[in-house]
């Protein structure tokens, strides 16, 4: 990872994203291999490493015994931040995540989006060298997601290094400078979102409704295709040409052309089988 970069871990459920985050955060021990976080080994200097990390966990674990302000203030204390500095930082961060109005309200009364924002603020109390976000916008409505994204982009602009996991591929495409797609604990590909799309899904996608006719027609024309449910997808550099050929030769019911996305790469690499 490079300093100042937003790095994403993508993968289906059970791919090992959260486990990776937990290992980086010195919470889960690694079973083999080497891991260096902030130039240190998590087995040897966990407290020192953790002092430089800010973690937004997947699960909301705010302290229900405290107010919004109390959560930030108490958390700052765990980092050995002196009380006066902690108090100042808590108020600054509440303003940053737009929760100043909720300062003295217990966290149970917050909405889901507010809770996630407060957790983001909590992860920033120690001015972390690396911000680790495990599914930062899980379960949020579009408004709340956009607000989190806006805050993350602001942090990115300030030069913060951010690691995040997500299954929202639009989120990854939007935020990440570089990402990996992983499955079964292994990294499948690594690169910038744009490069990954170009390399693995082509520039554009033509979708046609699946029928025996179209399938045999594509086979005759020797055009590579993929079946996705009741649609057939053809990855191409020029959707217009492919669409024209299809319309002329195969008489499909419906043809859709669209730009290729990270989702196409993701599904191609990790398959369409449902993960439990």
């Amino acid at each position: 990872m490079k300093k100042g970069e937003v790095f994403g871990f993508l993968g289906p459920n059970g791919a090992g994203k959260t486990t990776t985050m937990k290992m980086i955060a010195c919470v889960s021990p690694k079973t083999s291999g080497t891991l260096i976080v902030l130039g240190m080994d998590p087995d040897e200097a966990p407290a020192k490493i953790k002092a430089g990390l800010g973690v937004v966990p997947q699960e909301t674990n705010l302290d229900p015994d405290f107010t919004c302000y109390g959560n930030l203030f108490t958390y700052a204390r765990y980092f050995d931040i002196p009380e006066a500095a902690a108090a100042k930082k808590a108020d600054e961060l509440l303003e940053f995540v737009q929760l100043t109005e909720k300062r003295d309200i217990t966290v149970e009364k917050l909405s889901g989006g507010m809770k996630r924002r407060l957790i983001l603020a909590r992860a920033l109390v120690n001015n972390p060298d690396i911000l680790i976000l495990d599914e930062p916008t899980i379960g949020l409505d579009p408004q709340a997601r956009h607000l989190i994204w806006e805050k993350l982009r602001a942090l990115q602009a300030q030069g913060n290094t951010i690691v995040l996991t997500t299954h929202y591929l639009d989120e990854a495409a939007r935020l990440c400078d570089r990402l990996v797609i992983m499955d079964n604990g292994r990294i499948l590909v690594e690169g910038t979102p744009a490069n990954l799309v170009r390399e693995h899904a082509g520039r554009e996608i033509v979708e046609v409704e699946k029928s025996a006719e179209v399938v045999s027609c594509l086979q005759d024309l020797q055009i590579p295709y993929e079946v996705a449910g009741d649609m057939i997808q053809v990855a191409t550099e020029s959707s217009r040409d492919v669409a024209r050929i299809l319309l002329d030769r195969c008489r499909p019911e419906k043809v859709i052309t669209r730009p290729a996305t990270l989702e196409d790469v993701f599904l191609k690499l990790t398959g369409r089988k449902l993960r439990e």
Binding site: A25, V27, P46, A47, K48, K50, A51, L53, V55, P57, E59, T60, N61, L62, D63, P64, D65, Y75, Y78, F79, D80, R122, N126
Partner: peptide, 14 residues
């Protein structure tokens, strides 16, 4: 229920 320990061990606390 409160997951307080999980939150704490993400800080320098072990």
């Amino acid at each position: 229920y409160q997951k307080s320990f999980d939150a704490m061990i993400a800080t320098p606390l072990s």
